[in-house]
Nucleic acid binder design. Structure first.
Length: 815
RNA sequence: GUCGGCGUGGCGGAAUGGCAGACGCGCCAGCCUUAGGAGCUGGUGCCCGAAAGGGCGUGGAGGUUCAAAUCCUCUCGCCGACACCA
């Protein structure tokens, strides 16, 4: 006999039981041929770090809850999982523990994490599991690289890398600490130019930017971040002739051709190819010194903020094409070779950076755009807004936004310039000088040059021994696929972001050994209906995935142009003020949770703890509250006789109220689950439980209304707390697993309150209140209002000149 | 610096422009009891009041509106992203 106040709810017993049953029944297996509408529910695949805890679980519980609801709603749900398994941590672990191979480290972690996910009751279609480090996956990563190459989207170019002069090796950015090698803290890291592979993502800059408008179910924040990252700017390129060097000119880029008449000097990036030729003898030594210093500059120095601008005059002069004026040419590192043309015209009056520079080196400042507030006597800062053109010859008096176009037209007519669009986005450097990644499938042949590995020879597999590929002679020595000459393999591997740029397509046909994915199946499942993951991937991963999707679309392999219809970034779980992490030692273990309060309590708690997009603080007290809630649900559904009815509630809940609450809860919970607003969804379920308890304590019979309420509660709670719900479902005598049951239908009419309070205001002051039928028409409500004595008095005998009727509850009369 | 977001009880947080504070935690009082980290009932924004009731109240100052936590302007504070991109 159950003691009053104690429930027999024992998560330790029922959770393993249902996890086993779901696995046996293959509950979340996605059927490719199902006639049902599809729903592709995806969580970002994780790096298998082996410390899966409740901090990670939040994301997966959201995905699982949505998958379970969509399934009950009649969708064929694809809810797959995999592992972003290449990457540096595995190598670091291998270095730390000699003899531990990155692959073993990775696969062990995967096995461990997988156990934890199952212990949380999270259901995936494990038949579709993938790991990016396995040859049957990275074979197709390599295939996709070759597709990029074939489509002219992969190329080789020199790029600076971090070089440790002692180890004579390339270092990842993470291995450079304060400009020094991580293994040799007194050795400065050098910058070296090496040949590296790039993907031409800039070819897609316009589409990546413009199509952001089509994915309007992404968080605004992420779309803004991507917009800024791509950084499209509209302006003009203008040729400035060089004084004393006939036929030579410097091409500059500006977003403000309307300020051309205000250019009082020109600045070249230190790496600009014309620096040497322009520099006069007198200035040569100083320029060389400056350029040399800039070249050596480390990342850290470049990142130092608020640094004063420095520069050196070349002694050369450029000729402004609009007015023939001779302006001095300087070299300064605030101009970057990697953006625009590596050269600018400096207009200190209308650009803050140029203004600072002009002040420091005492260069002239000429105002050419008058702000709307009128001309200024002393120029104390740059005015960057629009205005009226002054000091600009024939353009004077024009609005600067109009002059912009006119000047461009004139430059184009004269052949000294043209409109131009530039992007902040750079091409994607994908070469990594690392072992634990997908080898770039390229052979360098003395005769045939750069030769792609033929598709039928893929995958180019990693050598067994853990050691940099460049140090494995047996591996990199090969034969040219074309002529059979002695040749050398590419020894760099690919950025792991390549692996993750297409994994969501592989889930459509994970065992396909003829192509990266079956276009028919991919077209069936794509696009992803809901993509959930951390906001730290707002730019790179999501931008790269969009890029790959567009390339595959252009290659005729995919119908969609955008991979992810709806994106959600969940907040992180903190404990003791810090993000849960192995290194911080504050993670809540899944195994421990599951053996104490139970996985269901952890699941519901993490959903209830706060808004899903916000960071939240884990607390034992909060978790306890949820445990109590689950115990109460258990007792209400299975042991209602154990509820103490000796003290009734203040407000009696009758059958009508109970039925209405049930209907309302169905509507609200469904809507809020759909929008991933789980915290409020849980609150509604708690309200339903409160109402059910009030009903019992008010002497309510355990009749059909009660049975319906109990079953509805079980169904609505199921996505969040599936184990306890399955157990209750079974004990209620229902057939089949709840995972296959149907979602409760929302009866809008049953959810409406029958009465509302009509509030009558006259000139903004409340004059009367009365109870009316909720369905009362506007006209009848007005008649009723006018008939009230107090209202008539307030209106002073006159009728209202204006009537405002809002919703069902308020009438406002303006005399 | 630029862009974006957020400021609501003791705490986490609810609120299509329409009863601010749902739901939970915590706390207070009472009940029950096999004395437990259980259960039940009531209370809990602030101020005045024994109560009825009244006043104030969503960082601050203005504004729009019959009506503002919500919309607009300015301002203060916190958080995030980018950070010399011409």
């Amino acid at each position: 006999m159950t003691r009053p106040g104690r429930s027999a709810y024992a998560p330790q017993e029922i959770e393993p039981k249902w996890q086993r049953i779901w696995a046996e029944r293959g509950v979340m297996k996605a059927n490719d041929d199902s006639p049902k509408p599809k729903f592709y529910d995806l969580v970002m695949y994780p790096y298998p770090s082996g410390d899966l805890h409740m901090g990670h679980a939040r994301n997966y519980v959201m995905g699982d809850a949505l998958a379970r609801m969509k399934r009950m709603q009649g969708f064929e749900v694809l809810h797959p999982f995999g592992w972003d398994a290449f990457g540096l941590p595995a190598e670091n672990a291998a270095m730390k523990h000699p003899g531990l191979h990155p692959e073993k480290y990775t696969l062990d972690n995967i096995a461990e994490s997988k156990r934890d996910l199952k212990m949380m009751g999270i259901l995936y279609d494990w038949d579709r599991e993938l790991a990016s480090c396995m040859p049957d996956y990275y074979r197709w990563t390599q295939w996709l690289f070759l597709l990029m190459l074939e489509r002219g989207l992969a190329y080789r170019a020199k790029a600076p890398v971090n070089w440790c002069p002692v180890d004579k090796t390339v270092l990842a950015n993470e291995q450079v600490i304060n400009g020094r090698c991580w293994r040799h803290p007194d050795v400065e890291v050098e910058k070296r130019d090496l040949e590296q592979w790039f993907l031409k993502i800039t070819d897609y800059a316009d589409r990546l930017l413009d199509d952001l408008a089509t994915i309007d179910k992404w968080p605004q924040k992420v779309r803004v971040m991507q917009t800024n990252w791509i950084g499209r700017s509209m302006g003009a390129e203008v040729d400035f002739a060089i004084d004393g060097l006939p036929g030579e000119s410097v091409r500059i880029y500006t977003t403000r051709p309307d300020t051309l008449f205000g250019a009082t000097f020109m600045v070249l990036a230190p790496e600009h190819p014309l620096v040497e030729r322009i520099t006069t003898e007198k200035h040569r030594a100083r320029i060389r010194e400056y350029v040399e210093k800039a070249r050596k500059e480390t990342e850290i120095e470049r990142l130092s903020t608020e640094r004063d601008k420095t520069g050196v005059a070349t002694g050369g002069f450029a000729i402004n094409p609009v007015n023939g004026e001779k302006i001095p040419i300087w070299v300064a590192d605030y101009v970057l070779m990697t953006y625009g043309t590596g050269a600018i015209m400096a207009v200190p009056a209308h650009d803050e950076r140029d203004f600072d520079f002009a002040q420091r080196y005492d260069l002239p400042i000429r105002e050419v755009i008058a702000p709307p507030t009128g001309a200024r006597k002393v120029l104390r800062e740059a005015y960057v807004g629009p205005g009226v053109m002054v000091n600009s010859d024939g353009y004077d008096g024009l609005d600067s936004t109009v002059a912009f176009g006119k000047i461009c037209d004139d430059l184009e007519k004269r052949g000294v310039g043209n409109r131009a669009v530039k992007y902040r986005l750079r091409d994607w450097l994908i070469s990594r000088q690392r072992y634990w990644g997908a080898p770039i499938p390229i052979v360098y042949c003395p005769t045939h040059g750069i030769v792609p590995v033929p598709v039928d020879q893929l995958p180019v597999t990693l050598p067994r021994e853990y050691r940099p590929l460049a140090e494995q002679p047996d591996w990199y020595r090969t034969k040219c696929p074309i002529g059979g000459e002695e040749a050398r393999r590419e020894t760099d591997t690919m950025d792991t972001f390549i692996d993750s740029s297409w994994y969501f397509l592989r889930y459509a046909s994970p065992h396909d050994d003829r192509e990266p994915f079956d276009p028919e199946l991919a077209n069936h499942w794509m696009a992803v209906d809901q993509y959930t993951g951390g906001v730290e991937h707002a730019i790179l991963h999501l931008l790269y995935s969009r890029f790959f999707t567009k390339v595959l679309h252009d290659a005729g392999m995919l119908e969609v142009e955008e991979p992810f219809k709806r994106l959600f970034n969940q907040g992180m779980v903190k404990r003791f003020g810090q993000v849960m992490a192995k290194s911080a030692g504050n993670g809540v273990s899944i195994a421990q949770l599951s053996s104490e309060q139970g996985a269901d309590a952890g699941r519901v708690y993490e959903m209830f703890i706060g808004p899903p997009e916000e960071d939240v603080e884990w607390s034992e007290a909060g978790l306890n509250g949820v445990v109590k809630f689950l115990q109460r649900v258990w007792r209400l559904v299975l042991e209602p006789e154990s509820i103490d009815v000796s003290e009734g509630p203040m407000v009696a809940v009758d059958e009508v109220v109970l039925r209405r609450r049930v209907a309302q809860t169905i509507g609200r919970v469904t809507e809020h689950y759909d929008e991933l607003r789980f915290n409020t969804a849980v609150a509604f379920l708690m309200e339903l439980a409160n109402t059910m308890q009030d009903y019992l304590q008010g002497g309510g019979a355990r009749d059909a209304s009660w049975a319906d309420a109990a079953r509805t509660l079980v169904k609505l709670l199921n996505p969040l707390a599936p184990h306890i719900c399955e157990e209750m479902w079974e004990r209620l005598g229902e057939q089949g697993v709840l995972a296959d049951a149907s979602w409760p239908a929302f009866d809008r009419a049953a959810a409406v309150e029958p009465k509302v309070t009509l509030v009558i205001q006259v000139a903004g002051k409340v004059r009367d209140k009365l109870e009316v039928d909720a369905g009362l028409s506007e006209g009848d409500a007005l008649k009723l209002a006018m008939a009230r004595e107090k209202v008539g008095a307030a209106l002073n005998g006159r009728g209202p000149s204006k009537v405002i009727y809002v919703r069902d509850r308020l009438i406002n009369l303006v005399p």
